[in-house]
Each structure stands twice: as structure tokens, then as C-alpha cells.
């Protein structure tokens, strides 16, 4: 029975295939260390072949062999080879290009309803804030978070407000930088929250956008009251067009998720959420990109450009660029973008 020339069946099975496994092991180790790109043609071809053979051997061995050492080895080898074979075949450049050419614009164009809702929330909030402020200026301190007000309030004079808008009060750039930081993290916080809370049936996102609108409204009310409406408009425009658009887009991403939960249609809720997640993730990434762009505009352009006309022109010009890109890019190839 234990004659070396005639070993038992499972030993024979192993003896015939062991060389292939060892080679597969070597190739997989290489892939793990330096990526599939490091393989030459023969190794890549052998990887696919040997992987299938090893999987085959594993399923046979599970039936015929009781050799634990063999089973454990094949199990681990197949797992590693599987991970090497079914790796994402993406190049960073390709991913980025696809996102900017078709992914993000397509997601925007598919999210009309959610975008409209998000804009509505923001505008409603702004109008309500504006009207409330005209009724009673004490609403200002109710809505405005202290740190965001930067010392501006119903008690501020026209000159004080103007000084902030045009940075003429000789306030050092460092202080302003700190404020910009706060504003930036405030807005990213709002955007992330509005996105993340969308899953909870839209309502928290709506409230958050509405509240953000309120802040904007009372702020505008304060400045309009001091006859600085146009100045504020220009001050906000230069970065706000991009920044508010980013917040609206992030909120819309949240709404996409919330709408999937509320109205899953013929899918199950889980499926609907997963499906909507494809677009929502793109919207979130787009919002992040726009927030960074807005921060750059805020940090540099707003401090350097102080004229009303140029501020408005830059702000809305950039806005028009965003709009043009999002509406027009990738129209030809927008056949399907659901897969990933």
C-alpha cells in the first residue's frame, strides 16, 4: 500500500499538480508585492491558467483528499490568487477622467428632482430669514451662530460692515485666515451632514439646507438694512456661487438617498438605496471638489479683488463654467453609467 512507486490516490493527485501550484504561488507573491503591472506576458497568461487549475484542484481535493496540509494550502493559495486575479483594473487617470467627463455631469443630470428640492430648501430658508429679519432684527442673533457672525450684528454700523466686506479695517490676513478656516470647515461640515443625513428620509437634510438658508437670509437682511445689499451680493458671489452650489449638490446627494428610501419603486429599499448610491457618491465627490475650489476662491480671489463689478463677474463667471460643464459634458457618451 505504501509503496513509493504507487502512492495513495490523493498523494498522486498532489504530486501531479504541485509544480503548478508552486509557480502560481510565486506569481501571486509577485503580484502582491509589486502589482499586476509588474508581470510579463508569460506570467500574466500563466496566472489566469494556473488560477483556474488551482481552483479546480481545490474543489476536487475537497472531495477526495483528507490531507489537511494540502487542503489548507490550496485554500489559502486560491484565496490569494483570486484576489490577484479579480483586482480592480483601474488606472487612477482613467477613474479621474471618467468622473470628470461623464460621471459627475451625468449624475447631476439624473438628479434634477433632488437638486430642485435642495435649491428650494435653501431659497425658502433665505427668503424666510430675510423677511423675519425685516420684521424683527433680534432674529439675527437667534439664527446666526456667534462664531460665524465675526462680530457683525444688528448693532454694527454701516462702516463696520463695510470694513469686513472690503477688508479695509486693516485686519491682518492671519485673523481673516482663521475666519476663513472656520467658514470652510463649517461649510464642509454642513455639506457632509446634509449628505449623510439624507438617508433618514430627506427631512434632516431639508432642515439643514433650510437653516443654512436662514443664516444667509438674516445676513442679507442685515446688510440690505444698512444699504450694503449690492456690496454683500458681490462679496458673497465671488466664492458663494461655488460654495452654495456645492452645498446644494451635497444636499441633493442626500436627497437621492432619502428619496430611494421613501419611494423605492419596484425595487426593495436596500436595492434602491444601493442604486441611488452610485449617483449620490458622485454628487458627494463633486461637492467636495467644488468646496475646495470655493475655499481657494475665498482665500485668494476675495482678498485680492475688491471691486463690486469684478467680484460679481468672477463669481458668476465661475458659476457659469460649472453649469456649462455639468450640463454639457459627456452628453454623447451618456448611454449608461450605472455599472460603477
Amino acid at each position: 500500500m505504501s509503496d513509493p512507486a504507487d502512492p495513495i490516490r490523493s498523494s498522486r493527485f498532489r504530486r501531479e499538480r504541485e509544480a503548478g501550484w508552486r509557480r502560481l504561488d510565486a506569481i501571486v507573491t509577485r503580484v502582491e508585492r509589486s502589482g499586476a503591472g509588474a508581470l510579463d506576458f508569460e506570467e500574466a497568461r500563466d496566472l489566469a491558467l494556473l488560477y483556474r487549475e488551482a481552483l479546480n484542484a481545490l474543489s476536487v481535493a475537497r472531495e477526495i483528499s483528507l490531507d489537511k496540509a494540502l487542503l489548507a494550502y490550496l485554500d489559502a493559495l486560491c484565496c490569494r490568487a483570486y484576489l490577484a486575479v479579480y483586482a480592480p483594473r483601474e488606472r487612477l487617470g482613467g477613474v479621474v477622467r471618467r468622473f470628470f467627463t461623464t460621471g459627475a455631469p451625468g449624475a447631476i443630470r439624473r438628479s434634477g428632482l433632488a437638486l430642485a428640492l435642495a435649491t428650494l430648501a435653501l431659497v425658502l430658508g433665505a427668503v424666510a430669514g430675510f423677511l423675519l429679519f425685516r420684521e424683527d432684527s433680534s432674529w439675527y442673533s437667534t439664527f446666526m451662530p456667534g462664531s460665524l457672525a465675526d462680530g457683525r450684528g444688528p448693532a454694527s454700523s454701516r462702516e463696520q460692515l463695510e470694513a469686513v466686506l472690503y477688508d479695509t479695517g486693516g485686519s491682518p490676513l492671519g485673523e481673516l485666515g482663521a475666519f476663513a478656516t472656520y467658514l470652510f470647515s463649517h461649510n464642509t461640515g454642513i455639506a457632509i451632514l446634509a449628505f449623510g443625513l439624507g438617508v433618514a428620509a430627506c427631512l434632516p437634510s431639508f432642515l439643514l439646507a433650510f437653516y443654512n438658508g436662514l443664516i444667509l437670509g438674516v445676513f442679507a437682511g442685515l446688510h440690505a438694512d444698512r444699504d450694503l445689499g449690492l456690496d454683500l451680493f458681490a462679496w458673497l458671489s465671488i466664492h458663494g456661487v461655488t460654495e452654495l452650489a456645492a452645498i446644494v449638490i451635497a444636499t441633493a446627494g442626500g436627497f437621492r438617498l432619502g428619496l430611494a428610501v421613501l419611494f423605492p419603486g419596484r425595487r426593495t429599499r436596500r436595492d434602491a438605496l444601493r442604486h441611488a448610491g452610485h449617483d449620490a457618491a458622485k454628487l458627494a465627490v463633486l461637492a467636495a471638489v467644488m468646496l475646495v475650489a470655493a475655499a481657494l476662491l475665498e482665500g485668494f480671489a476675495r482678498q485680492l479683488v475688491t471691486g463690486i463689478g469684478p467680484r460679481i463677474a468672477i463669481g458668476w463667471g465661475v458659476g457659469a463654467l460649472w453649469l456649462g460643464w455639468l450640463l454639457l459634458a459627456g452628453r454623447g457618451s451618456a448611454v449608461r453609467e450605472d455599472g460603477r
Binding site: D3, P4, E18, D25, E32, A69, A76, C79
Partner: peptide
């Protein structure tokens, strides 16, 4: 966690070299 693949010698083969 990534599995480690260590192939131990086949006992049946090792034993087969011994005198039956």
C-alpha cells in the same frame, strides 16, 4: 486578513519511503 499559504510535505509520501 490575507491567508498565508504554507505547503507542508505530504505525510503519505514521506511515510511511503519508510519500510512497510
Amino acid at each position: 486578513s490575507l491567508p498565508k499559504a504554507v505547503l507542508l510535505p505530504d505525510l503519505a509520501e514521506v511515510a511511503a519511503t519508510a519500510v512497510p
